[in-house]
């Protein structure tokens, strides 16, 4: 499909269908399909080696798929130059030239997207303001902090007013406040620019809090996709975690084992002081089962330091699905 400048922006800004890619005998991507709508933020998740980078490289036209196809704003992947005009990308690791100031850097990229020098400079200043770097516009980018480098990377991804923005691990290496601020900026981009944003991240609680949709990859396959709420709702919810003082662990394990609805109680792996309580499938549907579990501990005078029903968070879904426990 050829692109026309007069084509209005579509609701579905990115449609991927059956994308496949292999490196020699190894299949890196096995039929990835999903849809991204304008103004939506899509979390693109998966453990290391799941095929996220390959997917992003294909969708950003750096690499060609072996099979399948995708469109950006209705433009087929067979027109990579036209797609590049409509996307903005912040790669996971990107370098900055040593001898350029922030505004020079954005002006340079603006010119590469076909703007005149003065237009590119004006757009660059607007973007620096948008990402909170206006005060450092004339500082060399080599003097920027890590957070500032991520911000100017995002600004660069926006110089062409893209329809789809790809952000690969934008919060990596940032402190908690920096992560929060950057995610706020990412949300703002999706909302105010009506752009579809694909956010690759390992920070699952943050993805859960800011994203509308999610795609979870595992071993080159898409194991879940949909709205965050839908995907979370698909997981097993017959488990809970309880944290008690270390000296009470054995007592708590014994007391909880006496409850009829409890199948087994085990120390939670990798979480010292926590017990993992597995319930019968029938008991999982009982809305009062959590109360009964807590009541048992309270009657035995065992202090409950923390309590979490398992399966109600994106992190639980991620761990279940990427461990092969697909329901």
């Amino acid at each position: 499909m050829a692109y026309s400048e007069t084509t209005p922006r579509r609701t579905e800004v990115l449609v991927a269908e059956g994308l496949q890619k292999s490196y020699g005998p190894r299949m890196a991507l096995r039929g990835l399909s999903f849809v991204l709508k304008a103004g939506r933020l899509l979390g693109f998740l998966g453990p290391n080696g799941a095929g996220k980078t390959t997917s992003i490289r294909i969708l950003t036209t750096i690499m060609e798929p072996d099979a399948g196809n995708f469109t950006v704003d209705g433009i087929s992947h067979e027109y990579p130059d036209q797609i590049r005009r409509r996307i903005g990308v912040l790669p996971e690791s990107f370098g900055l030239p040593k001898q350029m100031t922030g505004i020079e850097y954005l002006t340079y990229f603006g010119q590469l997207y076909g703007r005149t020098a003065s237009d590119a400079r004006a757009v660059g200043m607007e973007l620096l303001e948008e990402v909170g770097l206006k005060q450092r516009a004339r500082s060399l980018v080599s003097t920027y902090s890590h957070g500032m480098r991520q911000r100017i990377g995002i600004a660069r991804a926006l110089v062409n007013d893209p329809v789809v923005v790809f952000l690969d691990e934008p919060t990596i290496g940032l402190d908690p406040r920096g992560q929060q601020e950057l995610l706020g900026l990412v949300q703002q981009i999706a909302e105010e620019r009506s752009a579809g944003v694909i956010l690759c991240s390992h920070l699952l609680p943050e993805v859960e809090s800011v994203c509308d949709d999610v795609v979870i990859m595992s071993s080159g396959e898409c194991v879940a996709s949909g709205t965050v709420a839908d995907v979370i709702g698909r997981t097993e919810q017959n488990m809970m975690r309880i944290r008690v003082p270390p000296e009470s662990l054995e007592d708590a394990q014994r007391e909880l084992g006496t409850i009829a609805a409890v199948r087994q109680v085990l120390p939670a792996s990798g979480m010292p002081g926590w017990l993992r309580v597995e319930l019968d499938e029938a008991a999982a549907a009982d809305p009062f089962v959590n109360n009964r579990v807590l009541d048992t501990l309270l009657r035995a005078e065992i202090p409950v330091l923390s309590f979490e029903p398992e399966g109600g968070r994106l992190q639980d879904v991620f761990l279940q699905l990427t461990a092969g426990g697909i329901k």
């Binding site: 750096i62 590049r84 990308v89 790669p91 690791s93 990107f94 370098g95 900055l96 030239p97 997207y113």
Partner: peptide, 16 residues
């Protein structure tokens, strides 16, 4: 050199 400094990807992502 640009590959090593990770500046090439940004350049190749432009419609140039």
């Amino acid at each position: 050199g640009e590959r090593e400094r990770a500046t090439l990807e940004g350049l190749l992502l432009t419609p140039t």
